[in-house]
Amino acid sequence: MHLALVIDDYLPDSTRVGAKMFHELAVELTHLGHNVTVITPGFEQKHAFRETQLDKVKIWNFRSSPIKDIGKIQRAINETVLSHRAWSAIKHRIKGDTFDGVVYYSPSIFFGGLVSKIKQRCACRSYLILRDFFPQWAIDSGLINAGSMIERYFRYFEKRNYSAANVIGVMSQKNLEVFGKQSPCYSGKSEILRNWASLKPSEEVYDIRKKLSLENHIIFFYGGNIGHAQDMANLMRLAKGMNDYQLAHFLFIGQGDEVELIKQLAEQWQLSNFTFLPSVGQDAFKKILAEIDIGLFSLSKKHTAHNFPGKLLGYMVEAKPILGSINKGNDLKEVINSNSAGYILDNGEDQSLLNSAIKLYEDQEERMELGLNSQKLLENEFSVSSAANLIVKGLRS
C-alpha cells in the first residue's frame, strides 16, 4: 500500500515525542513493505512545497507559519489554515491512485479537511491516531470556558476531524469509554491503539552527567512538553521535597507554556537540586535517557481523559523505572503498578509521591528491577510493530 501519513510536527526538525513516535511508525510501515509519504508543515520554508527523505521515508513539507511555542490566538489562526495550505501545496501531486490509505495524528484537530480531500480523490480509507481529547482537556484545565464561542469553534473542527476517519485509535480502555460518552456518534469506529516505541535502546551516551557535574548523583528526569496539561508544579513540589537528599538531582528538558513557572519556583524555593535545559534533538535526547536513573511524568488532576504520555515509552526502552502522578481513575496507574514498572500515584498525593521517590533514591536494586520490568512491559504491550499491524488492518477493513 502507498500510505499518506499526516502530522503537524515531524523529524528531523522536531524534538517532540509525537514526532519521534510517528517517524518510528513510518519506518516500521516501510519495513512491512509499504510505500510511505509523510505530509507535514515546513515552518518558514521559502517555497510552498518541498520534498525530502529520511530513513527511506518520503517527506512532503508544505509551507506553514509556526504553530508551536507561540501565543494561543496566533497558534489557533495558524493551525486553522493547515489543511488549506497543505492541500494547495500537494493537490497537483495527487492522482486517483496515489494513495491507498491515510493515517493522521491528533493533535492537531485541523487536518480533517485535508484528509477528506485525499480520501475523495484516492477513494481510500483513513485511520485517526487520537492522542488527546482537545478541546476537552483545555476546558478541564480552565483554559477555555465551557459553552464559549471559542469552545464551539474548536468543537466544529474536532467533529470534522473525527468525521474524516474510518477508524479512530485511542490510547486505552478508559479513553475508549470516555470517547464513547463524549462523542457517541463516532464511538462505533473507535478502538484501542496504544502508544508505541522502537525496542532498540541507545548504544551511546551524551555525557550529560559529566557536563552537569552529576557523576555520582541519582538523576530524576523529565523530558518533553512543559505545559498546563502536565501540571509541572506537581513535579517541582517533589523536587522541593527531595532538596535535602544530597545526591538527588532533578533534570528537566523540554519546552512549553510552563517553562517560566518552573524556573520561578526553582528560584523561589532556592532549589539546589534542579536543572532546566531547553529541548535537544532526538538523537541527543535518546542518549540522555540512557544515562538517567528515574523517568518522571505528571498529568493534571483536572483531566477527564486518560492519557498515556509518549515520554514513558522512552523510559521503557532504556529500562528506567517510572515515577509519576495522574488524574484520578486513569488506567495507566494499573498498567504501570501491576507490572511493577514503577510507582504511579494520583495527582495530589504529594507525600506518597515523595515517599516513592525516596525509596527509588535509596534502593539501587529496586531501580534496576523496576526498570527491567518497564522494558518487558514495552515489549509485551507497546511495540511499534503491533501498532503498525493494527493500523494497516483498519485501513484494509
Rank of each mutant, 00 (worst) to 15 (best):
D13N: 13
D13M: 06
D13T: 12
S14Y: 08
S14D: 07
V17Y: 10
V17W: 09
G18V: 01
K20Q: 06
K20Y: 06
F22G: 01
E24G: 04
E24V: 02
E24I: 02
L25P: 03
A26K: 03
E28K: 10
L29N: 02
L29P: 00
T30K: 10
H31C: 08
L32N: 12
G33R: 09
G33E: 06
H34E: 07
V36M: 01
V38L: 04
V38I: 09
Q45D: 00
Q45A: 00
H47G: 07
A48R: 00
F49P: 00
R50I: 01
R50M: 10
R50N: 12
E51H: 07
E51Y: 09
Q53N: 12
D55R: 05
D55K: 06
K56I: 05
W60M: 07
F62V: 15
F62N: 14
F62Q: 11
S64C: 01
S64A: 15
S65D: 15
P66L: 00
I67N: 11
D69I: 13
D69Y: 14
I70R: 02
I70M: 08
G71T: 10
K72Y: 08
I73S: 06
Q74L: 12
A76P: 10
I77E: 12
E79C: 14
E79V: 11
V81L: 12
L82V: 02
L82T: 01
H84L: 15
H84T: 15
H84N: 15
A86W: 07
A89W: 08
A89Y: 04
I90D: 07
I90C: 05
I90G: 02
I90E: 09
H92W: 05
H92F: 07
R93K: 13
I94T: 08
I94V: 15
D97L: 09
T98V: 11
F99Q: 08
D100W: 12
G101I: 05
V102Q: 07
Y104T: 02
P107R: 05
S108K: 06
I109F: 06
F111L: 15
G112H: 04
G113P: 01
L114N: 10
L114Q: 11
S116L: 15
